[in-house]
C-alpha cells in the first residue's frame, strides 16, 4: 500500500498519537534500537512528541494511535486524527480494546471520581473507556500490552513495500509449540489464556513457566467458554474467572462476555 516508495524523494509521513494510555506502546517504536535508524531513513517522522518536539503539520500517510477514548476531548480529537490520516493503525490493548482503564466500564465511573478526586466536578470523563474502532474506521490493529516491536517493524516494512503484514490472528499456543515450550496447562496444571489469546508476543510467559495473561486479547474465533471449563477443572472458579478475563483486554468483546458470564 506504500503511498510513496522508500527511495523516492518524498518519504511516507508518520504521526504517532496518544490517547488514554501509559506510553509503553509508543516507546516500542523508540525501543527498535537496531531498526530505528532504518525506520527514520525510510519514513518521515512528522509528529511524534515522545521522540521530538518538532511537529510537522498533516496530512499524514500513516498514523499510529495509542490509547483509548475516555474523555469528550478525546472523542473529538480522534476525528481530527482520522481526517488527517491516510492509514490509521491502532497500537496496543488500550487502542484496540479500551485497555485496563476499561475496568470502569463494569462500574459507575462517578463513584470512582468521587473517591479519587478532591473536587470531582472538575473531572470531565466519559462513562466508558472505548477502543478507537468504536469512534472511527481503523485500517489495521496491532495488539498487545505492550505491542511487540518486531510486529511494529513488520507492519512498517509491509506498508513501505506494499505487502500484507504478517500479523497472525491465531492462538498463542501455535507460537508456544513452534518454539518447543512444554504446555504449562497440561504438564503443570497452570491456568493459561493461550488457547483463546492472539499470538504475537512469541509466547513469552509459558517459556518462563507462567500461564498466558492474554495481553494480546482474544484470538480469532475464541472459545472462552470451553477454556473456562478447563480452568474450572484446575480449580479456578467464579470471581477468579471474572478477574482472569478482566485485565488489559477486559472490554474486548469475547473477554467481556466471558467475564460477565461468571459474574454472580
Amino acid at each position: 500500500m506504500a503511498p510513496t516508495k522508500a527511495k523516492t524523494a518524498s518519504k511516507p509521513r508518520l504521526a504517532v498519537w496518544k490517547f488514554a494510555s501509559c506510553d509503553g506502546c509508543q516507546l516500542s517504536l523508540l525501543d527498535c534500537e537496531d531498526e530505528l535508524l532504518a525506520v527514520a531513513g525510510a519514513i518521515e517522522i512528522a509528529n511524534f512528541p515522545e521522540a521530538s518536539r518538532a511537529v510537522a503539520k498533516g496530512p499524514y500517510d500513516v498514523s499510529l494511535v495509542e490509547g483509548s477514548i475516555t474523555t469528550p476531548h478525546d472523542a473529538e480529537r480522534i476525528q481530527m486524527v482520522r481526517k488527517q490520516s491516510r492509514y490509521l493503525v491502532t497500537i496496543g490493548a488500550c487502542a484496540t480494546a479500551g485497555g485496563i482503564q476499561a475496568l470502569r466500564n463494569f462500574a459507575d465511573v462517578k463513584e470512582f471520581t468521587s473517591i479519587v478526586y478532591a473536587t470531582p466536578q472538575y473531572i470531565q470523563t466519559l462513562k466508558k473507556s472505548t477502543p478507537i474502532t468504536d469512534h472511527v474506521f481503523v485500517d489495521f490493529e496491532l495488539r498487545g500490552c505492550p505491542i511487540n516491536k518486531h510486529q511494529l517493524v513488520e507492519l512498517v516494512s509491509a506498508l513501505l513495500n506494499s505487502r500484507k503484514p504478517n500479523v497472525p490472528t491465531y492462538s498463542a499456543c501455535i507460537e508456544c509449540k513452534r518454539r518447543g515450550t512444554v504446555c504449562v496447562m497440561v504438564a503443570q496444571g497452570t491456568p493459561c489464556l493461550g488457547p483463546v489469546t492472539q499470538a504475537g508476543c512469541g509466547a513469552i510467559c509459558p517459556s518462563y513457566h507462567r500461564g498466558c495473561y492474554g495481553c494480546y486479547g482474544p484470538k480469532e474465533s475464541p472459545n472462552t467458554a470451553a477454556l473456562s471449563v478447563g480452568w474450572s477443572r484446575l480449580g479456578v472458579r467464579g470471581d477468579d474467572l471474572v478477574r482472569v478475563y478482566r485485565t488489559y483486554n477486559a472490554y474486548a468483546d469475547a473477554f467481556r462476555r466471558e467475564s460477565e458470564a461468571h459474574e454472580k
Partner: peptide, 30 residues
C-alpha cells in the same frame, strides 16, 4: 466444536501433521 478451542495444539503435537504456511518478509529498505 462446543469444547474445541481451535487452538491448534493437536496439530502441532501430531507427529504426522505437515501443514504449513509460507510467509514473505522484507526489510525496511526493500
Amino acid at each position: 466444536a462446543n469444547r474445541c478451542m481451535t487452538c491448534a495444539n493437536c496439530t502441532m503435537v501430531c507427529p504426522t501433521c505437515f501443514c504449513h504456511t509460507v510467509e514473505d518478509v522484507t526489510d525496511l529498505s526493500g
